[in-house]
Design a protein around this nucleic acid. Structure first.
Length: 505
RNA sequence: GACCCGCUAGCUCAGCAGGCAGAGCACUUGACUUUUAAUCAAGGGGCCGAGGGUUCGAAUCCCUCGCGGGUCACCA
């Protein structure tokens, strides 16, 4: 970074200490957020003051305009921005000199004063006292264009948050979504539970896991790829309505819709089936979308997406047959492969399940509005119950929005013998080189042998839903601290080291 | 993993027929007591991502590497 500016900042801090002013003090009594001030004194007319309403607020200085014997500055806090006005005759000569010399863009400042509205109508605080709360050494990104460098945005998200107001709002929406989801489920009588993240056998999804090592047992373990199998153990144990919101880890590629570490919400309801889960999905997602965007029709990357209920339902078999002319239940492997070849989309593993998944991928993009895709074949659904009317398919659905899979649910398979057979088939695929096939989980089979009630289960990809709500083109935009390739910090260390030596002097 | 694009001041970006490294904001100094992308005057600031090559001369052309972005492939 700019060494000259850094030196100036360090010099500035040293001077403050000489004046007996601590640049990093301990606390400040903040009575009002910026938003609260604007709300509470909204009635003030232009040029009107409210001198008897002494209040205090604090935030980061994000704009500063000196005018000789007065100055305007803007404090940013987590509710917004508020302008402050300071003048020589309001704080005294000494304090004003201190302000001019030692308050810079980027610093945290606490102020006390009263609200007023300027001639031009801007709600402001007339500063009577101010206090340095934390000095910044680094310079803020440009005020007008904001921060645009994707590398800084992803690697130093805090810089994006502090400089681009939109970023703070985007992440507030993320946590608001989590809050609303919990509220919705709690209201329906679901209890939030937790399951392990370190698994000796991991399952519940088709994915490559991360491998880690536990020293006390001296064995490798997996980071979970799904919460599913442990949540169902709760059902065996006697819980009836549970959910978990947590991180899953999949050691696979990164794309605009894939991130190795992502947030999944899974819900399980005893005595329910996939139809009930469909109702739950529709109700939950349309409710949070409406609360967070203010409507049921959203604009996503210039495209209109309508979340109004009820959502469209298509059977996987029918949709593929309609678009590609091939029947995934009746036609031979060769016939399926032929269609894939004609679309230049040949899977590495030529097993029937993979062929079906590949065929689906070809048509999935056509679904823009939220659509339930129903009745996946048994072969690609090792944890779902067979359909009550057709043993070739399962009672399962996936929710597709704008070509992206956002939820997955089924009437949970609870027949232990059947589950064992399904695992065996998957184990066969693993042996044949499919690294994403499910692992045999004998403890889970044993759990089912004790009896699990008929259960509806549902998983929702929280990040993807959030992409639509915030109109974000890339999943990394709504993951606060996305995975980045590690880099060295030699330059940063050197600069800080020099500063620390200077401080010792 | 393959292909394409990018990397120049703290930030946003020019400069790429090869010829002294630029602007705006930010920073420093000064003026200014209702500004809001404040204004005015003066000034400082660069390993042009790294390394190698071509050339009298490279930010600019070529090669290798690093980091990032996008598209495709695998995956939710």
């Amino acid at each position: 970074m700019n060494e000259e500016i850094r030196q100036q900042k360090m010099q500035n801090i040293a001077e403050l200490r000489e004046l007996g002013i601590e640049p990093y003090p301990y606390r400040f009594s903040k009575t009002h957020s910026s938003a609260k001030i604007k709300e509470e004194y909204d009635y003030l007319e232009a040029s009107e003051t409210k001198e008897d309403a002494i209040l205090s607020t604090a935030g980061r200085v994000v704009a500063l305009r000196h005018h000789g014997k007065s100055a305007f500055f803007v404090l940013k806090d987590d509710s917004g921005r508020i302008q402050a006005y300071i003048r020589k005759d309001s704080v005294g000569d000494e304090n004003f000199k201190l302000f001019k010399k030692h308050i810079s863009l980027g610093d945290f400042v606490g102020i006390e004063g009263f609200p007023f509205r300027t001639h031009t109508g801007e709600m402001s605080i007339y500063v009577q006292k101010f206090e340095i709360l934390s000095k910044a050494i680094r310079m803020l990104p440009e005020k007008w264009h904001g921060l645009k460098d994707k590398e800084i945005i992803y690697r130093q998200r805090y810089v994006e948050m502090l400089s681009n107001d939109e970023a703070l709002e985007r992440f507030k929406k993320r946590f608001e979504l989590l809050r609303l989801t919990r509220e919705f489920l709690n209201q329906r009588g679901f209890m939030e539970v937790e399951t392990p993240i370190l698994h000796s056998v991991t399952g519940g999804a088709s994915a490559r896991p991360f491998i880690t090592h536990i020293n006390v047992f001296d064995v490798d373990m997996y980071m979970r790829i799904a919460e599913e199998l442990y949540l169902k153990r709760y059902l065996v144990g006697g819980f009836e309505r549970i959910y978990e919101i947590g991180k899953n880890f999949r050691n696979e590629g990164i794309s605009y819709k894939h991130h190795p570490e992502f947030t999944m919400m899974e819900v399980y309801q005893a005595y329910a089936d996939y139809e009930d889960m469909m109702e739950l999905t529709e109700a939950l997602i349309s409710s949070v979308v409406e609360k967070l965007t203010g409507g049921t029709v959203i604009e996503y990357q210039g495209k209109e997406i309508d979340f109004s209920r009820p959502w469209r339902k298509v059977k996987m078999r029918d949709f593929i047959k309609e678009r590609l002319g091939v029947d995934i239940l009746e036609d031979s492997d060769e016939a399926l492969l032929q269609v894939l070849e004609s679309h230049d989309n040949i899977p590495e593993i030529k097993e029937r399940g993979h062929l079906i998944e590949k065929l689906w991928d070809l048509v999935e993009d056509e679904l823009v509005a939220p659509t339930f895709v129903l009745e996946h074949p048994v072969i690609i659904s090792p944890l779902a119950k067979k359909h009550r009317n057709d043993p070739r398919v399962t009672e399962r659905f996936e929710l597709v929005i704008n070509g992206m899979e956002c939820a997955n649910a089924f009437s949970e398979l609870n027949d232990p013998v059947e589950q064992y057979k399904r695992f065996l088939h998957q184990a066969g695929l693993r042996d044949a080189g499919d690294a994403e096939a499910h692992m045999m989980d004998m403890d889970f089979v044993r759990a089912l042998e004790y009896g699990m009630p008929p259960t509806g289960g549902l998983g929702i990809g929280i990040d993807r839903i959030l992409m639509f709500i915030t109109d974000s083109p890339n999943i990394r935009d709504i993951i606060p601290f996305p995975l980045v390739r590690p880099v060295s910090f030699t330059e940063e260390e050197l600069a800080t080291e020099q500063a620390s030596e200077k401080k010792e002097e």
